[in-house]
């Protein structure tokens, strides 16, 4: 692959555009110049660190190091999912459910892709494993957070209906069925929308990157399709597991509704 390597001066010139934004902010008194500059600096530092980490990982190609990096990514993604929930499970459950399900779904799908479709040598090569996992996690986060939010918000609204079903002798799976259906549906809608819009409205970032890096568009598109299928699969697995886990935590073995295990807004 041949591509145009950027010099640091190229980046400095591009960063002038941030200066344009800052000037706009000062002119309109948005008081956004500080957050703007801080965010830009954070981005630079985070990406430089990421670059250092990736360089080391790509040179060592070690399974423990790659796995550790993957775990750190999952832990951060779990934190993000927790932060996006208005009402959440009390205690560690809130973090545990989202993180556990991302670990589960993300691992399954990434390993599946690495061992059957991509087959790099060795199979866990961080050059493939980490970017794939990153894209998968980024999209799973949205699906899981939306699904859990739907469940946590609507369980309060549907409390009377659920408790009436339980009081009449329905079990907890039956009483939660409509709610679980609605939550999984909400978790899956973003990926469905993004699949229908891909190529018409948006040119996916990953594909753009590959094309800029000199890849044949056809190859880039095949990669993009692979990634979209992986994302869809992982989101379904992750959101499904997370919603079932939360629903079972919101009930107990005696088929009671346990809203006391949910935080109050």
């Amino acid at each position: 692959m041949n591509y145009i390597t950027l010099t640091y001066w190229d980046l400095v010139i591009a960063a002038l555009l941030i200066g344009v934004n800052a000037a706009l902010s000062i002119r309109l008194r948005l008081s956004l110049e500080r957050p703007l500059v801080i965010a830009a600096c954070r981005m630079v530092v985070q990406l430089l660190l990421l670059g250092l980490v990736l360089k080391v990982l790509f040179e060592t190609v070690s399974l423990p190091f790659t796995a550790a990096a993957a775990l750190v990514m999952v832990l951060f993604a779990g934190y993000e999912v927790m932060g996006r929930q208005e009402r959440r499970l009390k205690g560690w459950w809130s973090y545990g459910v989202g993180t556990g399900c991302m670990l589960f779904g993300g691992t399954i799908v990434t390993v599946f892709a690495l061992t059957t479709q991509l087959q790099p040598e060795p199979w866990f090569h961080p050059r493939y494993a980490l970017p794939l996992l990153g894209m998968i996690l980024g999209n799973m986060m949205t699906g899981i957070a939306l699904g859990l939010n739907t469940l946590a918000t609507n369980v309060g609204r549907e409390r009377a209906a659920i408790e009436t079903m339980l009081a009449l002798g329905y079990d907890r799976a039956e009483a939660f069925r409509p709610l679980i259906r609605e939550s999984v549906r909400n978790g899956l809608i973003p990926i469905i929308n993004s699949m229908s819009a891909t190529g018409l409205v948006s040119i996916p970032g990953m594909m753009t990157g590959q094309i800029l890096a000199g890849a044949d568009p056809w190859d880039a598109i095949k990669y993009q399709l692979l990634v979209m299928f992986l994302i869809a699969g992982a989101t379904g697995i992750g959101a499904g597991c997370a919603i079932y886990a939360m629903a079972s935590r919101l009930t107990d073995a005696r088929h009671r509704l346990r809203l006391d295990r949910l935080t109050v807004k």
């Binding site: 009436t164 079903m165 409509p178």
Partner: peptide, 8 residues
């Protein structure tokens, strides 16, 4: 049967 029964 609750005083305000639920419906689904």
């Amino acid at each position: 049967m609750a005083a305000e029964p639920g419906w689904w």
